[in-house]
Design a binder for these strands. Structure first.
Lengths: 214, 214
DNA sequence: GTGTACCGACCGACCGGTCGGTCGGTATCG
DNA sequence: CGATACCGACCGACCGGTCGGTCGGTACAC
């Protein structure tokens, strides 16, 4: 009845799956131990393969981590942009972005750990990459704010600083949730955070009153 | 005329100076290479002493770093509290805190690097310590906000979330300044940041108009 | 004043462990 | 019989920490 081996699919397919298994294991190990303290041997063990097996699929330890970060961030950005695109009003777009980020992180705690915590302990090159990621999010936000200014919804402001500040505020709130012992649901911070952020750029109180409930 | 040796002061005094020299060198090396990549030999070389000399004054590499972080943070918190105490109005207090932090970091770039960037790459125990530091600052801010609420200057809000958000916003703006190639003066972000933060908690526009110029 | 005993400060060769990466080999499949 | 995938023993760089030893003072006796 049950197959005696799990040798399903073509060789190419099996190889792809193995690669994926290694990536999954790596995500696990990295977010448990941090980049430096995660040994390739640990990843190999958790992926039920060997160090040689890992190095067959990836040239370096660093490349595993990079790929993990890149694809994770990619998915998040895409998700945010998709949700934002469903709205046309800049205020609602900003709100949707905040909500999507919080909700996604809330549902993927270890992914969040990887992206926000571990990547920092990984040495120079990663920090640079991570900071570019920060920048990317900050610019995403700055873009929405600029459009809000252009449409006259809010008064002009330095969108770069505001983008960084928004990103930093969200980042820190998520970080606190990540490192707390038994944290309340992340979503609970949403109403306060949304109010703070929207008010900070001068969205008028009337607009704030008519925001959707979540 | 000039002394032929630089052997000034009592032995005890010389020892204290040496210790200080090592601490200075460590700050340098740590903020250049990050904790993990900073070898004790490097610190020794930069302090014009030897590894053994370093280990005479400090029990472990970790202890050097801890002392550096602790004393630096201590000084900053004390400075902020001193500046805040010169004001009585909660809004002006918050403004003074923001200004003090920005101005201090602006004047001590490598110190800021140490505190905000390197400490993160230093492994588990430091991250914990660093996060307690975040918490401390966030609570400092939350305290001011609570008082502002109590005095009826702003409407009630979740001061914990707001404290984290404020801290995160400031943190990120400073971080961006730290890692930029040739950044504009950090103080230039101050007007925007101050406006964002104070508005975010609902300080009325009239109050914002009467803030001091810097 | 000077010999002597002592001590804190400092030196740097060395040890031991860790870990990323390599390489010669083997198994499995088409 | 090749090629692809995989294995795991091994290498070597690196680095925190140790330890036996040196050296410049200082105190004190005489």
């Amino acid at each position: 009845m049950a197959m005696t081996t799990d040798a399903r699919g073509s060789p190419a397919e099996r190889s792809r799956q193995r690669r994926e298994r290694i990536l999954d294991a790596a995500a696990h190990v990295f977010s448990r131990a941090g980049y430096r303290d995660a040994a390739v041997d640990d990843i190999a063990r958790e992926a039920a393969t060997s160090k040689g097996g890992v190095y067959f699929h990836f040239p370096t330890k660093e490349s595993i981590f990079r790929e993990l970060i890149r694809s994770t961030a990619e998915r998040l950005v895409a998700k945010v942009e998709r949700e934002v695109a469903r709205e046309t009003d800049p205020v609602l777009q900003a709100d949707a972005a905040i909500w999507t980020v919080l909700r996604t992180f809330a549902g993927h705690r270890s992914m969040a750990r990887l992206l926000l915590v571990d990547a920092l302990g990984a040495g120079r090159p990663f920090r640079a990459e991570l900071l570019r990621l920060h920048e990317r999010f900050a610019e995403l936000i700055a873009g929405y704010l600029d459009r809000a200014v252009a449409e006259g919804v809010i008064a002009p402001l330095d969108a770069n600083v505001a983008g960084s500040a928004w990103f930093g505020a969200i980042h820190e709130v998520v970080l606190r949730w990540l490192v707390a012992d038994r944290p309340p649901p992340l979503e609970r911070a949403y109403p306060t955070l949304r109010l703070l952020l929207l008010r900070s750029v001068g969205v008028p109180e009337e607009r704030l009153a008519e925001l959707p409930n979540r």
